[in-house]
Amino acid sequence: MICAIDFGSCWIRSVFRNPTISDRLTMYAEKAEYAVVADTEQHKQTLLDQQIPFAECEGSLVVAGNAAVNARWLSRVPCAPLFADGIVPSDDPPARQILGLLTEAILPPPRGKQNLCAVTVPGLQDGSARAIRNEEFLCRLVRMRGYKPLIVAPAEAAMLAAGNDASFTGISIVMGAETTNIAVARYGSILACETLEIGSNWIDSEIARQFQVQVWDESGNTYLDLDSIRQWKVKTEIHLGAAIGDRERMMSRLYSVVLDRVSRTVALLLASAPVRNALPRPGLSVILAGGATQADGFINLLTDRFIEHEIADKILSIRLAQDPMTAVVRGGLIFGELEARSLPVEKVA
């Protein structure tokens, strides 16, 4: 069995081929958050009546994953993320246990002798002790399910999922909730890669902070209402190049800040020796993935930043991957299947 799991800071997704119909994919997705509800008989009975699964933990009722949305109204405290700043929290035992349960729930039981799982890990992969612990913990969860984990960068996976019309050669940019991953590839092989510690959550937080979009719990503690900002972004037809109103204009400016950093990083990657030696000619395709890249006007804004950083002449086209939200996990499955094919060759050699 070959499968893939994308541990995103907003969503955790998995995909695998249907065991009975190989040309069909089965995909699962769970929100990377949990709700904490006061442990009262009334709350407990409400959850039971609505058939919402929960666990009792340290005097509270915990509802995880997709079910947390249905229980959010029972508490004035926003849902807690399973990944704090893209990292598995070391001081949050419920979050670590929930990650284990969700991993077991969305990965199929292993079958056969070769059970591989491509894994994308959130947060910075900078070789720090924190990043190593993060990767080791998530890989341990995959091993406990019976799979051998194979780490793949989000941008590499996105290129495999959507770069076939460009011979898997070009630039892939994956803008996630906490980080933005950028890679330059030639025929599917990564020449240079970089991760920026900024994503859509930073944009949402800055808007909520500036316009004081907040919620209060029963004790008077204040929290940024990021869910309200995300719902506003979905329901409101906003074009980043034609913003109307203070909140829309601020969102456009914040996107510009992120894309300025992205463009600066792309310029540095293109100027690196591995890329210059392997891709001497200009005319690279840019593939975008991640939920934040779906904003209207995103491509135009990125084009403007490329022009400012004098790299527009190196770009042939910019386009969204088909279904940008799932491009990474689908590319992870391709990565896993390619690795599976190479294993017998390595054993013979």
Rank of each mutant, 00 (worst) to 15 (best):
I2V: 14
A4V: 09
F7H: 00
G8R: 01
G8Q: 06
S9K: 04
C10W: 01
R13T: 04
F16I: 01
T20Q: 13
I21M: 13
Y28R: 13
A32W: 00
Y34E: 02
V36R: 01
V37W: 05
A38I: 10
T40S: 13
H43A: 12
L47T: 06
Q50I: 10
I52L: 09
S60G: 01
V63P: 00
N70L: 14
A71S: 11
W73Y: 15
V77S: 03
P81Q: 05
F83N: 00
A84T: 02
D85G: 03
D91E: 14
P93I: 11
A95E: 00
Q97Y: 11
L102M: 08
T103H: 09
P108S: 08
G112H: 11
N115K: 13
N115C: 14
T120Y: 02
G123L: 00
Q125V: 04
R130K: 15
A131K: 04
E136I: 14
C139D: 09
P149W: 04
L150I: 08
A153H: 10
N164M: 13
S167L: 11
S167R: 13
I173F: 09
T179M: 04
I182P: 03
A183P: 03
S189M: 14
I190K: 06
A192T: 05
E194H: 15
I207W: 01
R209E: 07
F211M: 08
F211V: 06
V213K: 07
Q214C: 12
V215K: 02
D217Y: 07
G220L: 08
W232D: 03
I238L: 13
I238P: 00
H239Q: 11
G245W: 08
M250E: 08
S256N: 13
V257N: 05
L259I: 08
R261N: 15
S263Q: 04
R264N: 12
V266I: 10
L270Y: 00
A271F: 03
R276L: 09
N277A: 12
L279N: 01
G283K: 04
I287W: 04
L288H: 01
A289K: 02
A289E: 03
A295L: 07
A295D: 10
I299R: 09
F306L: 08
I307H: 14
A312H: 11
K314V: 06
S317R: 14
I318W: 00
R319M: 11
V329L: 10
R330M: 11
L333K: 07
I334L: 15
G336K: 02
E337C: 06
